[in-house]
Amino acid sequence: MTRFLLSQARLPAYAIFAGIFFLCGTFLTVPAYAKTMYVKKSGTKLMEGDSARAKVLGTLKEGTPVEVLRHSGRYYEVAIPGGTKGWLFQFYLTPEAPAHAPSGGNVLEALGGREQVSARESSSATSIRGLTPVSEQYAKNKGISPASVDAVKQMEALSIPREEREKFLAEGNLGEYGQ
């Protein structure tokens, strides 16, 4: 019975090639970047072009879904909800929907003051700042020197403004400023 089925399944070579060609055509003609990705963190800049030096159209909220349209260097051209198109540094996107989805409304935040605010301020996880009282209490109970506690507090307190970080990246041709 099996042999019979196999013999019936034996098709002329041209039919097999036609089938393969059809399948390849079906799957490979799907645009390579027609996929949904998500913004990893709030404050991600949507650019007018595929460069960190292009005009900033606005900033996006964490979890914003974007349709990737095409790829250029280390940038993706994307369409955001509402249809606005722009460019994003590719590593600011993830294929997995983050836990913190945008709370609704306009996903494109206005430029200006908001852009200067660290993206992380909008995250519930990072609203917890500073050495926790529990850690301080632990150190006290263990008789750990206050200098060691202060060292961690200083780590926590060290904040780097976005402008300084961008200058650092630009000078090193890193991140969005890389090739």
Partner: peptide, 12 residues
């Protein structure tokens, strides 16, 4: 809380 306590230990 755990990580901060351990960081203090590292410096110590």
């Amino acid at each position: 809380e755990i990580g901060g306590s351990l960081a203090v230990e590292v410096f110590n």
